[in-house]
Design a protein around this nucleic acid. Structure first.
Length: 271
DNA sequence: GGAGTTGTTTAGGA
DNA sequence: TTCCTAAACAACTC
């Protein structure tokens, strides 16, 4: 489910556990969610540690504890965070449970495309520091985007799904951005006029900003009139012109677009 | 029963 | 080497 705004929403669901000690850890250590993670160290170190703060970057979350502990969580396709009663016992898909006095912090993920990372030390782990600049940050400038895209020939849709370039963007947000920018998902970056590139940049930031204002707060829907509301429905219509949406697999993912707003052949739209 | 799912990673081809 | 694509991962819903 989660793209950046949903990730932010789930991060906050563990907020009740801030400044409280972890008493006990339940873990399905053999699951692939923990691939590459030192689960023995996690189980040994986390009890007694106090949850201090948390942060998201794109789809990646980090929870920082006392004792220099960094717990990374990626939700994959079906992951979610929630809290339960302190005496909660882990169910089939509850792969990590941090039991505290007031509540249990639960990470569950049915499909297990998610991931848990663990690091212990004064310095932040490489998996956190190496993340690209956030779309809402000053560093994610038009120049940054132009340079990062380079001459890449892949369809725009595939570019938008690349977490290096558009951290936190996923399938539905990519479609939303291209629809608002009036760009066909199969266009390639080198075909864009400088004006179209600027529009792509502007609309990316706009969609991210609005999504964080709406979805991240209470898991609400994006505003009315967004493609989001029609992109999966059979016979979905463009919110602007009520034109039937086109659909195809682009960049390996199901993509919906409006043939009228986003024509395959872009007319020269001036400079 | 088959197809499809808001995500990454990797093997292998061009 | 670099860039790109398709398949794989796994469980659930329609």
């Amino acid at each position: 489910m989660p793209e950046l705004a949903e990730v932010e929403y789930y991060r906050k669901r563990w907020a009740p556990g801030l400044n409280q000690k972890v008493l006990r850890v339940e873990i399905h250590a053999a699951k692939r969610l923990f691939r590459g993670t030192d689960t023995a160290l996690l189980q040994k170190t986390l009890p007694g540690a106090i949850l201090r703060e948390s942060e998201t970057r794109g789809k990646q979350m980090v929870f920082r504890f006392s004792k220099g502990i960094w717990l990374g969580v990626h939700l994959g396709m079906t992951g979610e965070l929630r809290t339960e009663e302190p005496a909660f016992t882990a169910g089939k898909h509850d792969h990590l449970v941090l039991c505290q006095q007031q509540q249990a912090l639960v990470f569950s993920d049915a499909r297990m495309f998610g991931r848990v990372l663990f690091h212990c030390g004064a310095e932040p782990p490489e998996w956190w520091t190496a993340l690209p600049p956030a779309i809402s940050s000053d560093a994610w400038s038009l120049e940054h985007l132009r340079a990062a895209i380079g001459k890449r020939r892949v369809p725009l849709k595939a570019l938008l799904l690349s977490q290096e370039l558009f951290p936190g963007i996923g399938n539905w947000m990519a479609d939303e951005i291209l629809w608002r920018a009036r760009l066909h998902p199969r266009m390639a970056a080198p075909e864009l006029t400088s004006r179209q590139l600027r529009t792509l940049w502007t609309e990316t930031r706009e969609v991210v900003e609005i999504a964080l204002r709406t979805i991240a707060v209470n898991f609400g829907d994006p505003p009315a009139g967004w493609l989001f509301h029609v992109r999966w429905t059979k016979g979905g219509l463009c919110p602007k012109h009520h034109t039937p949406l086109d659909r195809a697999t682009i960049g390996g993912r199901t993509t919906a677009w409006c043939p009228r707003c986003q024509p395959q052949k872009q007319e020269t739209e001036g400079r």
